[in-house]
């Protein structure tokens, strides 16, 4: 973990003039408040009576009016309970699929010798460059013929087939740092490749598995394009898609409930960030994962 600390750890607090440090802190605090102001204002507005939203710039929720949340939750034909359950299901399945399928492939690339390994590895890296727009339409046609349009399958099955190859790459990098002596020791004890994968490599790879899981979750939870294309019936909507319908269905007088639901849609991603901040920052710093 030492090289990680070198990348994202803190520098020793240096001396310097107190007034210069004070100035830097002042600037940073002002800048971060400015950055977060819109989000905080949305949060505060969601807790205000509708009439106040447009006239109140404060980010301090003086009133604590939860009416907008109640209204928003049931504003569409289908309640947000359904949308959150759908989103949670798709996101959890994507997490499981990505972690499982990518770690299996990564184990083969990092630990096993087999014919055409270099070719497959190069092809796998090649898919990283491919924008998903290229495969979009044939995939849609395929899923249409399978009768999968308007189901969750098109959003989930690709994850179980390790289509997000970036995670394979990430895991290969990590698996390679695990000493091979451990594999050999396990082999002496009678472990086959699957035993080594399951009992040696996976338990020692929790950080990279967690990173893959976290980013899979955030990306799937926020994904708008996939659900937009594949989900038609409102009972199948995920939260982002429901928010979009909400915009279309409301006039300009109903920002409160829309804000309330928007805030709720951000909560899971934000919670994941609070708990796994270090892993997220590390994932970005070390591999440029899109946050």
């Amino acid at each position: 973990m030492k090289d990680v600390d070198a990348l994202i750890g803190t520098r020793p607090v240096t001396g310097g003039h107190p007034w210069r440090r004070g100035l830097a802190h002042g600037l940073l605090i002002a800048a971060s408040i400015g950055m977060l102001y819109p989000v905080l204002w949305m949060l505060a507005s969601s807790l205000r009576p509708e009439a106040e939203i447009f006239t109140n710039f404060s980010i301090w929720p003086a009133s604590f009016d939860l009416r907008a949340y109640g209204e928003g939750w049931t504003a569409l034909k289908v309640s947000f309970t359904r949308f959150f359950l759908n989103s949670a299901f798709v996101a959890s399945a994507a997490v499981i699929g990505n972690v499982l399928a990518c770690s299996l492939a990564a184990f083969a690339f990092a630990r096993l010798n087999f014919r055409f390994k270099r070719v497959w590895f190069a092809l796998m890296l090649g898919t990283l460059m491919l924008p998903y727009h290229v495969t979009l339409i044939p995939q849609y046609v395929l899923f249409l013929h399978l009768g999968w349009v308007d189901t969750f399958f098109p959003l989930i099955v690709p994850k179980f087939l390790a289509v997000d190859a970036f995670f394979i790459f990430l895991m290969v990098q990590f698996f390679r740092t695990i000493p091979r002596e451990l594999d050999e020791a396990a082999m002496m004890d009678g472990c086959g490749p699957f035993g080594i994968y399951w009992r040696v490599i996976l338990p020692l790879s929790k950080p990279v598995l967690a990173t893959a899981a976290i980013f899979s979750f955030i990306w799937t939870w926020d994904d708008f394009f996939g659900p937009l294309i594949y989900l038609n019936d409102m009972t199948h909507y995920t939260v982002p898609l429901a928010l979009r319908s909400f915009i279309d269905s409301t006039g300009r007088s109903e920002w409160g409930p829309l804000f309330a639901m928007s805030i709720l849609s951000l909560v899971p991603v934000f919670a994941v960030f609070l708990f796994f901040q270090r892993l997220i920052i590390q994932g970005i710093a070390m591999s440029g994962l899109k946050g």
Partner: peptide
């Protein structure tokens, strides 16, 4: 935080 949340519909 803005990078974390910015791509969302919200």
């Amino acid at each position: 935080i803005p990078s974390l949340l910015g791509g969302s519909v919200a």
